[in-house]
Design a protein around this nucleic acid. Sequence first.
RNA 1: GGGCUCGUAGUCUAGCUCGGUUAUGACGUCGCCUUUACAUGGCGAAGAUCCGGUGUUCAAAUCACCGCGGGCCCA
Length: 773
Amino acid sequence: MEPKIAEKAWDPKLENAILKKWEKEKLYDFQLSDNNYTIDTPPPYPSGRPWHIGAASHYAQIDMIARTARMSGKNVYFPIGIDRNGLPVELYTEKKHGIRMRETERGEFLELCKNALDDLEAEMIQIMKSLGLSGDFKNYYRTDSEDYRKFTQETFIDLWKKGVIYLATRPNNYDWVSGTTIADAEIVYEEIPTKLVYMKFITKETKKEIIIASTRPELLCACKTVIVNPNDERYSDLIGKELIVPLTNREVKITPHHSAKIEFGSGAVMVCSYGDQNDVALFRELQLGEVIAIGLDGRMTEVAGEYQGLKPKQARTKIIEDLKNANLVEKIEDISHRTPLSERSKTPIEIVPMEEYYLKQKDSLEKMKKLGEEIEFYPNMHKQILMNWLESISIDWPISRRRFYGTEIPIWYCNECSEPFVPEPGKYYRPWKDKCPAGKCEKCGNTEFTGEERTFDTWMDSSVSPLFVTKFNRDEEFFKKTYPTAIRPQAKDIVRTWLYYTLLRCEKLTGEKPWSEAWIMGYGLDEKGMKMSKSKGNAIDPLPVIEKSGADTFRFWSASEINQGYDFRCSEQKIESTRKFLSKLWNVSRFLSSFPVIKSGQISESDKWILSELDKLISVCKEGYSKYNFFIPSTAIREFTWNIFAAQYIEIAKARAYGIGFTDEERDGAIFTLHKVLSTILKLLAPITPFITEHLWQTLYSQDSIHKENLPDIENVDDMSEMTQLLSEFNSKVWNEKKQKELSLKDSIKIDVPETLSQFKKDLIAMHNLESN
RNA sequence: GGGCUCGUAGUCUAGCUCGGUUAUGACGUCGCCUUUACAUGGCGAAGAUCCGGUGUUCAAAUCACCGCGGGCCCA
């Protein structure tokens, strides 16, 4: 019989047609039912080209979660969203058009951002689709849509009414490049070379010289005290005495404090508002009055005297010169200093007192820990990231940002008495341009208002993703049937932010946890194990890789190469070489396609053996799938298909399948078993490589999609796995002997079938053309 | 400084829970082979101080302890 499959290899170009067919058949459309499995899909941020190959791999695996659930009989809701709020697009737009946000009309700037996002988003959607994501693309949402922003504002108004939002002036992490406050979670630390300046302070009474080392001499004008360790004998007689600050000639006290390290610098430390977080803690503890030395424009203020208007770095250079000229410097060391940077703009943050809105979180920490305990983490070890973070939270969450491209904080202020007005939910508010919905101020009756200009931290938007996709407050039935959602898949670097904030917000709004499971993925690194970045030039663009090798190859690589939760290395060569397995699967199928698909036959001992191995494979795969660990099924299937099914069983059963020297019933047993095994492999593999399995399934077995099938169940065939090695050893022995004797594989040879394999004797004699004994 | 986590060929990985073969398989490398559905293949080879040390034991990749190294987080 001619094989139904003629082509000699799987052609990834077929994927496109399969995609179109799925779309036409509405295969993955979601209809609400009582058995919903909701995925809180991470909405990717279109930050620029190329998209990260690690992220593409994340999404491929998230799709495997969806397909696994679908093939386990669940009604899968797999929403697709795009995260479009926040700083990166503002920076991208400024650079692209050579403009500055604050010097551009706000409405115009927002329009430019929106256009940039549309471009970047289109490519991302294309990659996600071509990866075979079985998500709800038709209803994909954007976090900057009126609908979403209205929703974010509603949740804010709700929290405002609950009294968990407040205004406070606090030293804040301030990123002066992006001109906004940032949360602790957005700070990254880097070792940066800097100068440690040993300055000469003078004691007021005795005119004795005291050396104080600092990396921030420009903050001399904001120095309010000098601390020394109480155990430091060098200074014990000076505690409580006054020092003259160089250049400014102000007087400050020497205070004992345990945080002064005896061995660092000279042991005496100047405390300024604010050099670092430690200064903040000391100012609070010692109740010092702060001096604002750096303004919101990132430049020195008038308290800096002649240094006013300079950037801190410029001021530092100048002040070091001046100190040197005045002979007030003992020495200068070049050191490497662990500097806090803004994660987004990568510039050193300053600590500046500012009035911002806060969301209370400190009083929820115990509750959060409890919820964290209840949520199942895959892999479990990453739960620790959340727990450690919960342990270290010390201040409430600052939620206001001085940026443009974000959800506006829906507040107006009375021009007369400054009383804030928060409108009713139900509308998208833009206070920077909309008229205040209140006729007059409730407090003073004034009718003039000023709109709030700030926006929310983007995590305020993305932290309600599980509520948005389940239609919280908008469709009660839908919400009831989909929330709490089943699973939150995400990357491990945003556990402290996205995962935590979602937990916090959803609990505050619904009293429940947002998901019962969290699935945490590692980073994609380059082939040497370095972090990929556009600036280093080691980033791999996923689009050409997928176009060249095909989505299934990429997906199988992702599944078989990445250990759950661990960082992984990406190399194009390795991805491409994964394709060999798909070729193998293709050719196995091509061979089987020359035999009719039949319902039954007389099962021989070798058939029972492969069916028992197949049972084992099913168990292993289902175990792996149940833990969302795709490494387990992908490697098990490859191993079984290649080394057991193709290399051993097909060879053993081939002669019987051709029916030479066997009865029709015996022949049918082989053909039945061959198809049984292949069709099972295809179903087991379908969540990982949906395209090739669909193509082969429909060519060989059914008009219907394989993705409507359920994962196969085991049939409890008697275990014969002890035979596997014996068979493969015997076969290798015969093949090797023929090779040594320079015989063709078809030639006959005299080798006895060992007693242990006597049950397979007939198949083995036919397979190797053994001289009967 | 503290916490978490990991350490098996160039790379990914199995084995570790519950100690016992010649340490599994794949990618890559090298050699041979038109030979079967598949040269996108087959056969074979080289490649591992199982991070190190000590202890327990007849026996340690596996158990215990002490180190070392990487990554992430916090200070």
